[in-house]
Design a protein around this nucleic acid. Structure first.
Lengths: 191, 191, 191, 191
DNA sequence: GATGAATGAGCCTTCATTCAT
DNA sequence: AATGAATGAAGGCTCATTCAT
């Protein structure tokens, strides 16, 4: 293993330790000391990889599957099934409510974290809007609302469900809760 | 002005100062020292009114208009207009994104704050579920979904819109963003 | 009940409340607020009766039965039985270890408390020395040591037993522990 | 000087500063800020070495010479001279009354400190009881009392003398006071 | 690049005491 | 004489960050 690989490994170690701790306690309650202890490195080493805790949360943020969204509009036939399938994938994270709560805490914890989060949302909006426009073109989605607005509401719905679930409500499985919620959403945007 | 009134005034002073500061900076970044300085009282006085910062946020939390929701189901005719009207009232808070962000930070900042928030949601759920059941009885809302589930999704939608907006996206006016979002939601639950 | 009586009653109320709290927690841990709450008076009222907490402990200090000691030397015959009887009276306080610990904490907690304690010890020393001198005159106690020294050691023995017991060791009953200890002591000073 | 040595040095610096301050004022009156200032370190550094002030006193506690006591019972001939010699060693600490008072305050200041103290007493009791049993076997000490009880009273005597002396009474030298006191004690337990 | 002891600003909180009512 | 809201000094303690090794 060369030097570059080792660095990557250490960095991932730190991220994993942080995720675990965020899930066990919370974003705010987790200290850098705890993270480095669990990652098995010295405190000082942390700062060779991340400028500060804020930086860390930016790296952890739940992946918005932008790439997958982009590919949807290439699919023939109805688009909704593909979107539904994507939503079901959320299960795969096996995220605990605690972790999701920590993520929610993290993304609104600081201006920088918010900015970072908004950038990611921007990209998602772009990709998703195109999908919805395609759906409107194909007559699958209503054209009575601008695609951008539908997209925005979709993301709001996603965020709301995630927040609600992370607070300890809804189905024990986040994926299920998402799917149910989006069934209703789909109904409202179908042509 | 008697003692009792003076107490009430001081308490409100503290709350106002806190709200201002939360809006300017954030929940986490605001210190008790800052709050008392702005409220023009001694630091110790704060603790005569609130056990800690956590306690404070519980008092600030945006009021869920539970009472108003309860009254809706007594109304004759269509219910949606009344609900829509209630949603439009959110404007009245003239809340800034910053403040709403602080509220969002506050309610997920600690187990206690979450518990408090859940209690409030519980009450709202109870009231709103009855409204939706009434709507289903009247044939205004779809009966293909349990009222409780519809209610849950409504709250998710509300939370999601609030979170999204507080992060700096959506219409400049929270009320407008809410109304638009709920139009779509209504569409999905109409019979 | 006249004003004077009422004052005495309030004062005693405060003392009782303080003793209870010292016994439950400790001298240091007990706050004036707790004392006034239990005594059912306002915080400010406390300062009408005591200048501060230090003052309070001086009033609580376990009574050294100086008067009883003085009377012993008037008794005919052997003196030890009378002393032994006095020691057995300690039972009567029904003091808990906790309370005794609080008393021990109290008497060494501040220069003023120590000074007060020393004054009381001084008086006891004077009274007890006379008893011992009388015992030496009667040939009951050894004359190989000065009465003052024997007296000093007796008090040390008393203090040590009290401290040891208050820390949770020795017989469950303080009186028993005292009697046993002093039996040995008597043996050492008998002629 | 390597890192490890430096740490040891800093730790000892802190302890020395604390002992000095305890002796000058008292355990309770001494603040961590004062300790760190005198030790010439930052306040935060204190907490790298001790979890809190309570922890500190546990380290300072006057050494009970358990090891030395254990060795006594191996000695041939009379045991009392060896015990007497040990007691005389107390001089060596050159402890001031103030410091001893601080120690006394410290050991009964908190449940944790008491527990720690009791553990040390326990060990001493074990060691000392064996010595006394040996003395009883050799016919040096009275067998009319269980060794454990004699041992207990010895410790009470020690504690009482220490407390009495620390309050400002007795011979100016603690060692002298101890020796005198124990002469009487020995007399009471000799066969 | 890794280490971890040292830092120190600044946090929350306590509580004896005051004083206007 | 009683009240209790206001005070504010002072306490213990946290923790991100630095830097010499």
């Amino acid at each position: 293993m060369n030097r570059e690989d080792k660095k990557r490994l250490t960095r991932q170690n730190v991220l994993n330790a942080a995720i675990e701790l965020f899930a066990e306690q919370s974003y705010e309650a987790t200290t850098i000391t705890q993270i480095t202890e669990r990652a098995g490195i010295a405190k000082g080493t942390f700062f060779n990889y991340f400028a500060n805790k804020e930086d860390l949360i930016c790296d952890i943020q739940v992946i918005w599957a932008v790439e997958e969204v982009r590919r949807i509009k290439e699919q023939p036939g109805l688009l909704i099934p593909h979107i539904r399938y994507l939503i079901m994938q959320i299960d795969k994270f096996h995220a605990s409510r605690q972790l999701m709560l920590a993520v929610n805490q993290g993304i609104i914890s600081s201006p920088k974290a918010i900015r970072n989060q908004l950038e990611q949302i921007d990209e998602l909006v772009k990709a998703l809007t195109e999908v919805i426009e395609e759906g409107q073109r194909r007559g699958e989605f209503t054209s009575s609302l601008p695609a951008a607005m539908i997209c925005e509401i979709a993301i709001q719905t996603y965020l709301g469900t995630r927040l609600y679930w992370s607070m300890g409500r809804g189905d024990s499985n986040l994926g299920t809760q998402m799917v149910v919620t989006f069934e209703l959403f789909f109904k409202s945007i179908m042509a």
